[in-house]
């Protein structure tokens, strides 16, 4: 029982830490804005770029 639960906890932790680290890392200068057109056709909701775009739109 224990190894399974611990493993899942570990994997979750690893993912979230890497996610947070990635979010903290700023994109290189001049590349923070992504061409919205290039993103348009894709329906992927996990895409962080799409999120940032939406957030910017909302602002």
């Amino acid at each position: 029982m224990l190894p399974g639960i611990l493993f899942v906890c570990g994997a979750v932790g690893l993912y979230m830490v890497s996610f947070a680290l990635n979010k903290k890392t700023a994109a290189p200068e001049g590349l923070s804005k992504i061409d919205a057109l290039k993103c348009g056709a894709c329906q992927n909701f996990a895409c962080t770029i799409k999120q940032t775009l939406e957030e910017e739109e909302a602002v």
Partner: peptide, 12 residues
């Protein structure tokens, strides 16, 4: 989860 973290790390 491993693939997702991998992608995040690679992107970073």
């Amino acid at each position: 989860l491993i693939i997702a973290s991998l992608v995040q790390l690679v992107e970073m």
